[in-house]
């Protein structure tokens, strides 16, 4: 839970005085989407590796600790993808030109060229995509990132729900943490799966009931601040020359690689 809170809700890196942090969140999001589309479209592993190098360089210019960045990007999704891509290098799953053979537990397995290059391309694509998404996430304040979605003309109901939902998640995580601590302090030992399932379901039910009660309070708070059915969102984004220059650079990379 603490890892989750630290990694998701910390704006520490977004507050640093680095290159990506200085950009207008709207321009930054658009350029990162261009990079993601580029990563999706390319069939060349060399281009993917170059884009991965760009993401690492951007992290360095943005004063993100390299160890932290690599840990955030490689742990879980790329490692999981690496794990599931390994069988694909063998002829059982990807037939083709044999490269070499390996013996595992008495079984002779053939590694094929299309299998190996396909798996390498897959991993490179996944890790590069994840790196750009993580970079966008850690260098942008979260409430700004959610506000940026308005430029894509997303219906108001989604944008408003998104902003409110983000705040509720904080509250709910606090409630869950306290409940978990209370259960742990009372039970203290390992419990049987059936009992554990009942505790989880009871916690979810209790969370729903608290949320339901909260609805009325939140609505009253909204009314007292002048809510009349149409949400009003402040727009304080400002794009400077460096933002347009960065957009031009990203567009040039996009067009050149294509």
């Amino acid at each position: 839970m603490s890892f989750f809170k630290d990694s998701v809700f910390s704006d520490e890196n977004a507050s640093k005085n680095g290159f990506l942090q200085s950009l207008d969140p709207r321009i930054k999001t658009i350029t990162f989407l261009l990079f993601l589309v580029q990563i999706l479209l390319t069939r060349n592993i060399f281009i993917l590796l170059c884009l991965y190098a760009v993401s690492v360089l951007l992290a360095c210019f943005s004063k993100i600790r390299l160890g932290f960045f690599l840990k955030r990007t490689w742990v879980f999704i790329p490692l999981f993808s690496l794990f599931i891509a390994i069988p694909a290098i063998f002829s059982i799953f990807t037939p083709g030109e044999p490269l070499t053979t390996v013996k595992i537990a008495g079984l002779t397995l053939i590694i094929t060229r299309p299998g190996l290059s396909g798996a390498a391309l897959f991993i490179a694509r996944v890790v590069t995509s994840v790196s750009f998404v993580v970079l966008l996430n850690i260098t942008t304040k979260h409430f700004e990132l959610l506000k940026v979605l308005r430029i894509f003309k997303i219906p108001q109901i989604f944008v408003m729900t998104l902003g409110m939902c983000y705040r509720y998640i904080f509250l709910f995580i606090g409630i869950i943490e306290n409940t978990h601590l209370a259960v742990k302090s009372r039970v203290g030992i390992k419990i049987r799966p059936k009992k554990g399932q009942r505790i989880v379901a009871s916690n979810i039910t209790s969370l729903w009931q608290r949320s339901y009660q909260l609805n009325e309070d939140v609505y009253q708070a909204m009314l007292s601040r002048g809510y009349n059915g149409e949400p009003l969102v402040l727009n304080n984004f400002k794009a400077g020359w460096q933002d347009w220059l960065w957009l031009l650079c990203a567009l040039t990379i996009f067009i050149t690689i294509r």
Binding site: C165, I173, P193
Partner: peptide, 29 residues
């Protein structure tokens, strides 16, 4: 949802979203 949702229930939608986010964090034995 906009047509049928009363202003009073707008927070409920956000609560529902946060609720569905948080459910995924419960590990069930």
């Amino acid at each position: 949802v906009k047509k049928t949702l009363k202003a009073k229930q707008v927070p409920m939608l956000a609560i529902g979203a946060a609720f569905s986010f948080v459910i995924m964090m419960f590990n069930v034995p």
